[in-house]
Design a protein around this nucleic acid. Structure first.
Length: 399
DNA sequence: ATTCCACAGGAAGCGACGGCCC
DNA sequence: GGGCCGTCGCTTCCTGTGGAAT
């Protein structure tokens, strides 16, 4: 042990040349197969350089199909231009998820950092207006709202930003909204929709051969020559193609497969490592998701996993999966709460928990449809119930 | 045809919290 | 220190919905 040094660890043989290229936070300087989208984006933004407000834009497409990367690339090009009054800012709405937080972030980026609360909406809004107008010809601000569907009061936000352009004597604000949920537009009211979606741009999913192309490109920069066998590459692209052409997923598969090969001291990554990486990724993901859950969501999940052995649980078989009535799971949840001396949440909140669990992929729900009285919901665990049970027992009931 | 059931999910509001400004 | 302000996690109340039961 005493002879071990950092250089030993760093110089250990590896299939990787540069792992960073595979990270989800890495954005490539060039993009393949997205010429049309990049051009459209740039044409849309171009008027800003003449002091004309660009149209608002709404971008959608499945996850991992290059939306964010394309926009970030264009933002870099804007920043590279000199002497302009075009300002840009990018934010992810999972973090900035309310009108207040978005406006606050704008003020923070360009004017002054503000505390989380304390100032009224009106105060910080005025600050923003003053800043945009405080220039001979005003400033043209382009705001990119990634995962825009996460904003809770999006109608208010869109209304405020639209109104800003009316209030401004000079300068403008344009919005580029990005989402991977096409259906979310339905939730907006008509005015916000027409305002936000002045222009729309769809990113279609990559097909298997495009995925291979992209992967090959990244492999060159991240792995040693010949470290990835052709079969492994093809398998990774095929898996990703079946996951809606998600490049991010494909890259993380390669990363995991490479790490697996390193740990087995292999010089090349084969199909086997990719396959194992996929399995391991699924398991790790479920473990991480479950252990990171708030207490009551864990209890709900636990109730669902335990329903199997209970005599009163009725089950409906649907292609081999066991579905449980949401009402019964709620009762089970309440009884577990009683046993563990925890105050159960209301059924309204329980329904929110189900939504959360479903969006995390930990459960799937279907409507009962015919054969059941009323409008019942049926729930099925997304992973092996026994494994989930063990994780939760360690977490909650263990201590 | 009407009533009942088992929910879904929107709206309003509550109270604690952390923070501002004066 | 008091009056605002926005947020969070939650409850209560309520209307809507689709099919079963009567």
């Amino acid at each position: 042990m005493s002879s071990l040094s950092f250089s030993d660890i760093l110089n250990k043989a590896s299939v990787f040349k540069n792992k960073n290229v595979l990270s989800p936070h890495y954005y490539p300087p060039e993009m393949l197969y997205r010429d049309h989208e990049l051009r459209t984006l740039m044409e849309l933004i171009a008027p800003a350089f003449k002091g004309v407000k660009p149209n608002n834009l709404f971008i959608y497409g499945n996850s991992g199909c290059g939306k964010t990367a394309a926009v970030k690339l264009v933002l870099q090009k804007i920043k590279a231009e000199e002497n302009t009054r075009v300002f840009t800012t990018y934010m992810n709405c999972r973090v900035y998820d309310s009108r207040y937080k978005v406006i606050q972030k704008l003020v923070g980026d360009f004017i002054i950092e503000l505390p989380r609360t304390g100032h009224s909406m009106a105060t910080i809004y005025e600050k923003l207006l003053d800043w945009i107008e405080d220039d001979d010809q005003g400033k043209n601000l382009i705001v990119v709202l990634d995962e825009i569907d996460a904003v809770k009061d999006l109608d208010d936000l869109v209304y405020t930003l639209t109104r800003t352009n009316d209030d401004l004597k000079k300068g403008s604000i344009s919005v580029i909204g990005i989402s991977n949920r096409i259906d979310f537009k339905k939730k907006l009211d008509a005015r916000s929709k027409s305002s936000l979606c002045e222009k729309e741009l769809v990113f279609h999913s990559y097909n298997a051969s495009q995925l291979s192309g992209i992967l090959e490109d990244r492999i060159k920069a991240s792995f040693n020559d010949g470290a990835i066998l052709h079969g492994a590459l093809n398998l990774a692209s095929a898996i990703a193609a079946s996951e809606n052409g998600d490049v991010r997923y494909a890259l993380s598969l390669l990363l995991w497969a490479g790490e697996l090969a390193d740990s087995k001291k292999l010089k090349v990554v084969t199909e086997k490592e990719v396959e194992d990486a996929r399995k391991k990724a699924d398991e790790d993901k479920s473990f991480e998701l479950v252990s990171g859950l708030p207490q009551h969501q864990q209890l709900v999940l636990y109730a669902l996993c335990l329903s199997d052995s209970e005599a009163y649980s009725k089950l409906v078989e649907e292609n081999g999966d066991k579905y449980y009535f949401s009402g019964h799971v709620y009762e089970k949840y309440k009884s577990i709460c009683r046993k563990t001396k925890v105050e159960p949440r209301s059924s309204r909140w329980y329904r929110e928990y189900l939504h959360d669990l479903e969006s995390l992929g930990l459960i799937t729900t279907i409507e009962s449809g015919k054969g059941v009285r009323g409008h019942a919901t049926l729930i099925c665990p997304g992973f092996d119930p026994n494994k989930i049970r063990v994780i939760i027992e360690k977490r909650i009931l263990g201590d």
